[in-house]
Design a protein around this nucleic acid. Structure first.
Length: 584
RNA sequence: GCCGACCUAGCUCAAUGGCAGAGCAAUACUUUCGUAAAGUAUAGGUUCGGGGUUCGACUCCCCGGGUCGGCUCCA
């Protein structure tokens, strides 16, 4: 899309939010108006209303907006003084506050837009007339609560969302695309392919992986542990629980308390479920004196960690109450940080290649000096560490976006960001440099001159949180996982009862070669079994009948390419083993 | 946590205060089949849990649990 088209679309969307406000004011004359910008795919507007509205109101508003569009209402800009504007908004606390904020910010005058009888504080831009808006190219989609100024301490306003495009066709395409995306949703596929379930009795945000889902997880774990071991990581196991003392010392208790579970008191001593595994690994490091020759030490663990989320924040396998981070802590000398950081990024890039992840971007996540509560108070160290990370990223010529106030409490992060099927952004992988905790824990090594030094630590998640990564992969592949990750890699379908014996023989052959195989001897027609196999996204269906039995072969059906025809059984075993081996 | 919607058979969904139902899945039998749904029959329910209103509640009200869309938060 060209810049000019983009601007026109923004004008249309923003103008629609004004028209929607007009429709709302017709119903609620004293409606307070919060913010109402154009956004990706549409627009929204916040309202302070005397009663809560439900989505049943949306069709009514839509009809009203359509009527207004057809009236060719003009949008005209004019300026207004602060006094006059405050008078105009004397019943609207939100607009009044905005005006006062603008004055504080040093604005000299206020920009208003008039459309028909509606005056609205707004800097635009807008369409010149509703003639430019296609009355059939927008749709109001949802109502939701949203805090005034985005702060949960403030009152909650009611937000109405709409989608809008230049033409009806584009709107239709967008809606169709949304419906397609819904089909890929990992929560839906998880149910259809029997990969994971939740139980009300076990509790929210606590998934149970079925045998099939467990295979996906196991394969991911096997892959990453082998890869990390090749790269010099040391596997460790540490407990999910620790004394509160540990987290007071690490700073988690001071900076991360809200995300930690309530204390568990045992015999007068407070314990807590770990929100992160870092201090546990540091205790391993501290278990004896260290020489500079030992570094870097790379402790790796697939560590279950527990973070108390607010219930509305949970989502399928993406946000959980307890999750498994493919975690590691690299204790380094300062002169080793750069190489280790680069190596971690290289590992992450390798993993993304293997997993087929292509749509991602890097985010350089920095502290916010104003957010005193969230971060360790050490501005010098923050500046130094952020500079160091930025230099490494720039040397690697990585493209990244910078994000304020997204760091960990102990240091800056480089995150790998992706969008899930519903268009929401999530962090998949992360690499962090910690200048803070090694000092707090008196971690040290003896350098070549016999002097005690404090090491630095890189925290990293090479394939992220394994549940979230599974969710992302399920959506990316719409359930059709690569052969090496498929819970069932091949299913044998005998054409009739007569060939079950032959099918069993084939099954034995495949099992011997570590292929995950099933024999479908249900009393069903061939067509039905193929349909079910396809819907279960099984990579290969092996149909066996008289021809195959005579020739010692299988008729291979590929889930994408369809019928591949007969193939000697040994040949097929070779083929599938190669695909599993090469992870294609 | 907040705003809103929702929770009925394993799954997808009907039943608008008056006898809880369908399709698919499951089970049994018949059929033994050549690349996306064979036929017949059977079984399957404290309508998320608890309380209330009512002659009568899946349906209305209250409390709790869970899910979804936003907000806040975030691996």
């Amino acid at each position: 899309m060209s810049k000019k088209e983009g601007l026109q679309l923004e004008k249309i969307r923003h103008s629609l939010s004004h028209l929607m406000s007009m429709a709302i004011i017709k119903i609620y004359p004293d409606a307070g108006l919060g913010v109402g910008p154009a956004i990706e795919n549409g627009f929204y507007q916040d309202y302070g209303l005397p009663e809560s509205i439900s989505s049943e109101l949306l069709p009514k508003l839509e009809k009203e907006i359509k009527k207004m569009i057809l009236k060719n209402i003009k949008f005209e800009q004019h300026d207004m003084s602060f006094d006059k504007a405050l008078k105009l908004y004397k019943k609207d606390p939100y607009k009044s506050e905005m005006i006062k904020d603008l004055k504080k910010a040093g604005e000299k005058k206020l920009s208003f837009y008039r459309s028909d009888w509606f005056e609205n504080l707004c800097k635009g831009p807008h369409v010149a007339s509703t003639k430019e808006i296609d009355p059939d190219a927008f749709k109001l989609t949802k109502v939701a609560g949203a805090y005034w100024k985005g702060d949960e301490k403030n009152k909650m306003l009611q937000r109405v969302y709409g989608v809008a495009f230049e033409t009806k066709k584009e709107l239709y395409q967008y809606l169709k695309q949304q419906a397609e995306a819904e089909k890929r949703d990992h929560r839906k596929i998880g149910k259809e392919l029997d990969l994971f379930v939740f139980s009300d009795l076990i509790g929210k945000g606590l998934p149970l992986l079925t045998p099939k889902g467990s295979i996906i997880r196991q394969e991911l774990e096997k892959f990453i542990t082998e890869e990390e071991t090749k790269r010099g990581y040391l596997r460790v196991y540490t407990p999910d629980l620790a004394r509160l003392e540990l987290y007071k010392k690490s700073g988690h208790w001071q900076h991360y308390k809200e995300s930690m579970y309530p204390l568990i008191n045992v015999d007068g001593e407070d314990y807590v479920l770990r929100p992160m595994a870092c201090p546990h690994h540091f205790m391993l490091y501290n278990s004896r004196p260290r020489s500079y020759r030992e570094l870097p030490l790379r402790y790796a663990e697939i560590a279950r960690q527990y973070r108390k989320e607010q219930s509305g924040e949970l989502s399928g396998l993406i946000r959980l109450m307890a999750f498994s981070l493919v975690d590691a802590h690299l204790v380094c000398r300062p002169d080793q940080i750069e190489k280790e950081f680069k190596d971690v990024l290289e590992l992450i890039q390798y993993n993304m290649k293997i997993l087929g992840i292509k749509d991602y971007w890097y985010r350089f996540s920095k502290w916010d000096p104003k957010n005193k509560k969230k971060y360790t108070n050490n501005p010098k160290a923050w500046q130094k560490t952020e500079k160091l990370m930025k230099e490494i990223l720039d040397k690697l010529k990585l493209k990244y976006v910078e994000a304020e106030d997204e760091a960990a409490f102990y240091g800056p992060k480089t995150d790998v960001q992706v969008k899930n099927v519903n268009g929401k952004e999530d962090t998949l992988f992360t690499v962090q440099i910690d200048f803070d905790m090694p000092g707090k824990f008196d971690m040290s090594y003896i350098d070549e001159k016999g002097k005690k030094q404090t090491p630095m630590v890189i925290h990293r998640a090479s394939i992220g949180c394994i549940e979230r990564t599974m969710a992302f992969l399920i959506e990316q592949y719409a359930g059709a996982m690569p052969v090496w990750l498929s819970p069932v890699q091949a299913q044998i379908i005998p054409i009739s009862e007569k060939f079950i014996k032959y099918g069993e023989k084939i099954k034995e052959m495949l099992l011997k070669e570590d292929v995950r195989v099933e024999l479908n001897n249900d009393n069903e027609t061939l067509g039905k079994k193929i349909r079910e196999g396809e819907m279960q996204k099984i990579p290969y269906l092996l149909i066996v009948g008289e021809k195959e039995q005579k020739a010692g072969s299988v008729a291979v059906r590929d889930r994408e390419k369809g019928d591949l025809g007969p193939m000697k059984t040994n040949k097929f075993i070779e083929k599938i083993k190669e695909e599993i081996e090469k992870k294609i």
